[in-house]
Every structure is written in C-alpha cells, then in structure tokens.
Design a protein around this nucleic acid. Structure first.
Lengths: 186, 186
DNA sequence: CATAAGTTTCTGTTTCTACCGAAACGTCTG
DNA sequence: CAGACGTTTCGGTAGAAACAGAAACTTATG
C-alpha cells in the first residue's frame, strides 16, 4: 500500500501531525487538516478508502472532511482511469491555497460580522440614548473591518506573480505612498 | 452600576456576544473575547470585579482571561486615582489591535511551525530515500510561510498612516510592481 | 438487477476545553 | 497585623466537538 509507505516516513508523519494541530488552533478540525496535509504530500490522487486506512479514521469522518476541504476549494475530486472510485487531490500552489482559505473564512465569518456591525452601527447612529463612545467605537469597528474586507477582495484579484513581487518588496512598498515614509526598514 | 447599564443596551450586548462567538471560531476562548469586547466599548477603565459581575463569570476566569489579553498586549492595566484595585483598558486603535494580535499569534503558532518545517526541509534535503515530491513540497511550504512571516515583520514596522494609505490603495499597489499588471481592477 | 461507491444520518463514546467555586498563597496598605 | 486585592492552583462539572461504527439511502455501473 503506497500510503502506508508515505506515512511511515517519520518526517512525513511529523508534517501531517503538526498540520493537524495547527488546524485545531485556528478552528479547523484535526481530521480535516490531516487529510489536507496527506493529500498535499501525495504524488497521486487518493481514494477515500486509502485516506481512511492511512490516517486510521472512520470512513464517514473522511467523507465529511473531504466535503469540507472541497468547500474551501483546496481539494478537488478527480477521476482516475480504470478506477470507479473518486480520487482526491490537494491544491499545491500555496498562494492559491492561502487565498482560497482566506476567501472562505471571510465568507463564513467576516462577512456576517460586517453585516451585523453594519446593522448595529446604523441603529446606534439614531439612538440618542446610547453612550457616545459606544456609537463611535462600534462605527469605527464596522468601518475598519469593512475596509480590510475590501482590501482583501482587491488583492485577491491580482495575478500571482504580482503578489509574489509585492510580498518580496515587503515594507518597501511604503515608498510609493509617501517618499518620506517606509525608510525605517529599508 | 455603570456596567449593568452598558450591557443592558441590546446593541452593546449583541456586540459582546458576537465578539465572543467570533473568538471561539478563531481559537480564542469566549470569556477572553467577551471581556475584550466589553473593555473596547467601555468609556473608562474597569476593575476585574466589575467585569466579573457584568459578564457573569467566575473571578478566577476573569483573572486568567485578563492575563491572556495582556499577553496579546491589547489590554493593559492602569491605575485609577483613589482606588486600590487594578483597572483595565483595551487598545482602541484598531490597527494597533490587529497588528498586536497578529504578532502574538505569529509568535505562538507560526514561528514554531516555520522552525519545524525548517528542520524537516533540511533533513529531507539529504534524505535520498524520501519521495522527490515530498521533499519539494515541504521545502516549498517552508519557504512560503517564511516569506509570509518576513513580509509581516516588515509591514508591522510601518507607520500607521502608511498602512492606511496602502490599504486604501487596494489592488492599485500592483501598478508599482510592473506597469502592465494591476490594471484589471483599476 | 446485483454490486460497488458514496453520502448522510444516527447513536454512542471519548476527549477537550471552558468554566465554576474554593482554597492557598503572596503582596500591599492603612 | 488585619483586611483588601490579586493570582494561581485544583478538583469537579458541564457542554461541545470530534470521532467511530452501523445503518439507511442514493446513484452509478457492469
């Protein structure tokens, strides 16, 4: 069994384990992250059964986790010639991976938060009874998160080579904002 | 009791509750986030007892949570004239808040991950037995996260007005990388 | 249609984690 | 030193997830 071989390697195992722990600390369940890690390192599409066996999880659990990963669009189902079973592969472009995870978490958690803050801010604007500071701070929070959201949507649309270039620029991008700024780190 | 008044307001309560839920989804415990929300909206430094009473938490729990928030450096202890008790205030500059939370999470979770990936990548580089793809992908992951980390360290050092300006630029920063890129969104 | 594959749902168990409340302890201050 | 304040620790509990394993069900395929 090819997967046995893969996970038998101590470094591969260490990676999978650590990735699983990472996930839990960011609110992603362990099975999901581990399966992702496994697929990321696999040199070929894996059927669910093999994942089940390799990680020692219940088949039902693997099914759910795969669905979740496809919800993030970082794992996709592929067809393998001569095999009726579904197989799965992970996105290996790390930029793409990061952007997709971010997109999904924004959709699930940030957008609803913005919506709620919007309601609260709007209502508070007309609410004379509310403390001035409360009105101001909830308003500022709404504005802040919205701005971040908009920024993300724009950055997400940039071509990857541009992202890479911007990243490498680091703090130096500040130069373009104001000639005087951004010199501290250059 | 001033805090009673504050939390009695339905919108304030909604904010605190939602902030608490948000926290849990990102791996921060509910008490910690709720206390942070409460302090963020408060117009004055609050003593631990008042927080305890307002949120209905155990005193020990509040103490631990406050310590955690101070670990993130988004809440600090202040002295109030004529009161022996410690009082606490939250950072209200949202940029500062975000950067500090990011810094601490990086320190706790990302840095150790980079360190581990570094070890694995290094060991795998000399390990002929490991599958080529595994060596390559763990190496790339290490490089990728390291790059992100370095980028963050640089951005963190920029003055806030610069950050705000960059954020407002959005996708337009791409112009500075290559004249041809970044036009899609402009 | 018989079988393989896959998903979904359910029940039950286990495991975490949050949280409470009490106690012990340290520190400061009138 | 007595009392106020604060932290830390500890035992216990409750709730939430994660997960296993079985079963029901759908769908595709030879």
């Amino acid at each position: 069994m090819a997967m046995k071989t893969l996970l038998e390697h101590p470094d591969v195992k260490a990676f999978v384990i650590h990735w699983g722990e990472m996930g839990t600390q960011w609110g992603v369940n362990r099975s999901v992250s581990q399966i992702h890690a496994l697929l990321y390192l696999s040199d070929r599409p894996l059927p669910a059964d093999e994942i089940t066996e390799a990680l020692g999880l219940a088949r039902s659990n693997v099914s759910t986790a795969l669905k979740e990963l496809q919800g993030y669009a970082i794992v996709r189902r592929v067809h393998v010639e001569g095999d009726r079973r579904d197989h799965f592969v992970a996105e290996t472009d790390l930029w793409e991976m990061l952007l997709r995870i971010a997109a999904e978490r924004k959709r699930r958690e940030i957008d609803p938060t913005i919506a709620l803050l919007g309601e609260l801010a709007e209502r508070l604007r007309h609410d004379e009874t509310a403390p001035k500071l409360v009105r101001e701070r909830i308003g500022r929070m709404h504005e802040f998160i919205s701005t971040l959201g908009n920024w993300y949507e724009q950055v997400r649309g940039l071509p990857k080579p541009t992202l890479v270039a911007l990243m490498k620029l680091g703090g130096k991008v500040a130069r373009f904002v104001s000639p005087l700024k951004g010199k501290a780190k250059s």
